[in-house]
Design a protein around this nucleic acid. Structure first.
Lengths: 206, 206
DNA sequence: TTGACATCCACACAGATGTGTGGTATGGTT
DNA sequence: AACCATACCACACATCTGTGTGGATGTCAA
């Protein structure tokens, strides 16, 4: 496990400012912007801080490129994905070859082909497929889907539901994943295809 | 619904390059970097493109700031969370007050108290709780938990399992969410608490 | 005491950078 | 024909920007 050298309180302030700027403007600050914000009258001071923070592994810089400050480690959005359950003591498993979860990669509109939106699941009609009341369904907009896909469907032009697409004799219908509910043979249109489920067990402001 | 003016193929190329650069380097390109990458010999050409794209609503720029190109709409990392199912036609619902899913906010180490890691779920022992084989369990490291919490537990110091924590007569034990399996009364230690489940229905490189 | 490190400063300089001015050419709409 | 958007170009200019040089002060461990 790579241990990070501790930062001093003043270095932390610099780090915090950079982080704020990136998350607020989507743009790292220039050296002079940092100096102005933190009350330094010399660019050399900021450079000393950036060098110290880079040496300690908190950020990465590129030479001769404006705003080329990339935050690492403690500010990473990536979460370590440890070995499977069960598969040995996970907090000691393969530190070198660790994989990381990258939610940007997984769900961002950037990587997804087509537009993506999310729906909050109401009810238990899909609970046998592991889709529970309150789950967030990530849907990619598309007008067609294959039998077997879980889709967001529009019924009667005013009700949206999440069901599995099925077909019988060249006729498509919607099938719940809960024996308590009956298949839906009404007309519907496809809004999109389920690409992921996200469930939070802690109160998050959504 | 705010409709976007269509971009021309060449404008799309510029947009794609900027998007690539941002997702690859975490840093928008300069005007001259765009020119070099797309084979333009004049900075004025790039400026014309940026002006056109800004006018059409695909990006935002700040005056006299290097690399100040912010992509809008199709490039946001945030996913729109539409109104619940069922709750009316979702693609027309409350455009102004839309909520957004922010995975950084939800799962990042930044916002979470304590360290977070992820485990891939094996088996169906928790399927009645909507936790299926192959799901990604997001776990926050902690050494204690309350009865009712789903926890990652370490058995015999070499096997990790996801179960619900329960107690009977001041004795803690692990309870599966599947009648096929029996409660586990062996000794165990708590690795962390389940804070979220993420399931992908599409092949993602993990 | 010597050295490493942290925390500041002033100033200079080359090159990067956004912007402005003024073109040319093409194609479609009115 | 007039007009507009698209798609390029060259060149100039003020300022922004990272970097280099050369300091100063204080702390703390060796």
């Amino acid at each position: 496990m790579k241990l990070l050298v501790k930062v001093t309180p003043k270095q932390q302030k610099v780090l915090d400012f950079i982080q704020d700027r990136i998350s607020k403007d989507n743009l790292p600050p220039t050296i002079r912007e940092i100096a102005a914000a933190l009350g330094f009258s010399s660019t050399g001071t900021v450079r000393d801080y950036l060098n110290a923070l880079e040496k300690k592994g908190y950020l990465k810089r590129s030479s001769n490129k404006s705003r080329a400050i990339e935050l690492l480690q403690g500010s990473s959005d990536k979460i370590r994905l440890l070995s499977s359950i069960p598969a040995g003591k996970p907090n000691e498993a393969h530190e070198d070859t660790d994989n990381y979860l990258d939610f940007e990669q997984m769900f961002s509109k950037k990587s997804a082909k087509g537009e993506v939106f999310a729906l909050k699941v109401k009810g238990d009609s899909m609970c046998d497929a592991g889709i529970m009341d309150g789950d967030i369904a990530i849907i990619r907009k598309q007008l067609t889907a294959d039998p077997g896909d879980v889709i967001a469907a529009l019924l009667d032009y005013n009700e949206v539901t999440l069901k599995r697409l099925n077909r019988k004799d060249s006729k498509f219908f919607l099938e719940p994943a809960n024996k308590k509910y009956q298949p839906i043979h009404k007309d519907f249109s496809i809004l999109g295809k389920l690409i992921a489920i996200v469930r939070s067990y802690e109160p998050v402001r959504i």
